[in-house]
Design a protein around this nucleic acid. Sequence first.
DNA 1: ACCTGAACACCGTTCAAGT
DNA 2: ACCTGAACACCGTTCAAGT
Lengths: 211, 211
Amino acid sequence: MTSRPAMPTRPLRADARRNYLRLLVEARAAVSEHGTQASLEDIARRADVGIGTLYRHFPTRQALLEAVLRDRFDTLGARAEELLSHPSPGQALAAWLRTFIVGATTYTGLAASLAAALHDEQSELHASCHGMRAAGQALFDRAQRSGAIRPDADATDVFILANAIAWAAEQVHDRTGLDDRLLSLALDGLHPQTVHTGARQSRLRGPDQIS
Amino acid sequence: MTSRPAMPTRPLRADARRNYLRLLVEARAAVSEHGTQASLEDIARRADVGIGTLYRHFPTRQALLEAVLRDRFDTLGARAEELLSHPSPGQALAAWLRTFIVGATTYTGLAASLAAALHDEQSELHASCHGMRAAGQALFDRAQRSGAIRPDADATDVFILANAIAWAAEQVHDRTGLDDRLLSLALDGLHPQTVHTGARQSRLRGPDQIS
DNA sequence: ACCTGAACACCGTTCAAGT
DNA sequence: ACCTGAACACCGTTCAAGT
């Protein structure tokens, strides 16, 4: 997982390159201040650049977000690879999920943008977070093989649930430690216990026939 | 939990009353078609009413949503009260949470609107779903007293997690049964097991000291 | 090749005029 | 008392003109 530089693929004219970097700097500031729905016009204005220039470099909001988040995804992917050598596969996965959730909570709307990207395969964000997801999946698989995670659990489900937890934590402002508590619930649900599968079936199927 | 009629508190002039009901009908249609972000202008147009009339009756989008969702909240509250007499407290809670999640998935954006309402105490939605939440809390408390839910779990956390699961299921279109699987994870996490608390502590605390 | 910003489109919200 | 819809504000997006 080599960290890609936050630069476009092709060489640029000097002024274009300068504008690109300015836009990226201001986009980071605006997104961290106003979330992923930050005003594009505002970003262009703060970068001392016409709005058309912003669109030239970043045709969609997703493209701009991708550039802003690229480092973060790479870091998370690298972290997952590091954790592959951690002695406890279960602890390693839990630690990574926690890091993921904390990261997804830093920007307002990030969890929603991630969910949208996961769903839209054409999105730049989708491609960009693929490496991170693959690394997380490897971590999950190892934990599952080691017996720390129950065999019927699915990595993508867990990824989605972690993102949902980040979303929930973002919405409710005053409940400190909410993400930790919710992640605990999710992790405990992932722990293999014969009683779980049994309980789950009876709890879900049984009561539907009541009313 | 008596079902309140979908009508304003004070008597209205005949034309006002007719407009109110028309708006409500079209709001239901628009919300079920386009989600909670449905265009207000479109709703007014379809109700053959000026946009100002919509604002007169429903000063905010939340107020309109509240009127649309009132029945649903009341039904969910009543269902929770029914389930209080179900022989298995744990199964009863699981069934109710499942019903809640299915309901929260029917409209695009409903989970997000609920989360926003939960956070904003001034919102009309906040007041409106209070009865439902109270009934759910009673169901939760009974399950916890019976030992089906571990003692350190919090009802509001579970409510928030269920809503987050509904949100996640709404985002990802093609994963059928996602909400069921995620709810299973959450429910299994709620099951009391000494190994859980221990595992949770070590999983969350341990790996943070790695890097 | 790239930049600029006026112009267009769209939507939410308010309020003066009308019945 | 209530309704109407023009007017205002705001923002995203495009594109003809300019360098």
